[in-house]
């Protein structure tokens, strides 16, 4: 994706939506450090703990560990590879499990969990990771409604605690009900800001018309100079700031046709609800 320039303050929750192939997962992976931007840069992540939950985690569900064993690894940032788990750490793990509704499941092996329970366990691990930035890619894809609502409450608690949460979702009704801010992405940002303003039929139509994912012959856009990066805003909050061209699209090709119109990227949300 390309031409993306946005920042999110601490203590915010952002939904990222868009059609298939829009670059949503790519964005998260870039923020997680797995991909490097071809041009542009990502600021504000130094010294921050980032937790990334991919869409299909490559977790071996048949591996013989208990739920507690798996979730306990969320505290790797404290103990590393060699330290023993202290009883205080074990207690925190049990509390995390309780807060996702899995109390009593500690000694169960992970192959006995249903999809929803496993996802809750992964969220418990996220709790323990105690990250400042959380990147969740379709976390409710195979999960029942009850679990989804519980986990959404957890997201809200994280936001209130000052974490930054970016969630890729495909269920727009969920986004409308639970997320105040949304980024509509279709390789390039279509709209960004208050959810109601972003998810308009016009915007959605434009997103659906994204050709680039399907059409190799679609016109590419040119690279250009990017606005300067922002650091801290007036409130002294740290920002996560990503801009520039993401992975996948580069500069000119020969004989390209007219460029598409430059998107209107808001540096700050137009809506009344500020992003803090």
């Amino acid at each position: 994706m390309h031409h993306l320039s946005l920042f999110c303050p601490a203590g915010s929750k952002l939904a990222i939506v868009g059609p298939n192939g829009a670059g949503k997962s790519t964005l998260l992976r870039a923020l997680a450090g797995q991909l490097r931007p071809l041009t542009g840069r990502i600021d504000g992540l130094a010294g921050q703990r980032v937790a990334y939950l991919p869409q299909t985690p490559q977790i071996d569900r048949s591996f013989p560990v208990t739920v507690q064993d798996m979730v306990q690894y969320g505290l790797w940032h404290q103990s590393g590879a060699l330290g023993r788990w202290t009883s205080a750490q074990r207690q925190r793990c049990l509390e995390a499990l309780a807060s996702v509704g899995l109390q009593g499941f500690e000694r169960r092996t992970i192959d006995t969990l249903s999809g929803g329970q496993f996802q809750r366990a992964l969220f418990a691990r996220l709790i323990l990771q105690d990250a400042d930035l959380l990147l969740l890619d379709e976390p409710f894809a195979a999960v029942d409604e009850g679990t989804t609502l519980d986990l959404l409450q957890l997201l809200e608690r994280w936001r209130a605690a000052g974490k930054t949460v970016l969630v890729v979702l495909h269920d727009l009704s969920l986004v409308r009900r639970h997320f105040a801010h949304t980024l509509l992405l279709a390789r390039e940002p279509i709209a960004f800001g208050a959810t109601a303003a972003v998810l308009t039929p016009a915007n959605l139509r434009r997103a659906m018309n994204m050709r680039e994912a399907f059409d190799e012959a679609a016109p590419w856009c040119e690279a250009e100079a990017e606005p300067a990066a922002h650091g801290l805003d007036a409130h002294g909050h740290e920002h996560v700031h990503a801009h520039g061209h993401g992975h996948g699209h580069e500069v000119h090709g020969p004989g390209r046709s007219a460029q598409p119109p430059r998107p209107q990227v808001q540096a700050a949300p137009a809506g009344a609800a500020g992003v803090h």
Binding site: Q34, Q58, Y73, W76, A81
Partner: peptide
Amino acid sequence: RLLYRALVLECLDPDFLRAHSPRW
């Protein structure tokens, strides 16, 4: 003894381990 935890994680969730500590 030294590698136990890293090895379990390597088998269980290699991306998680790589994200936390590529060296281990």
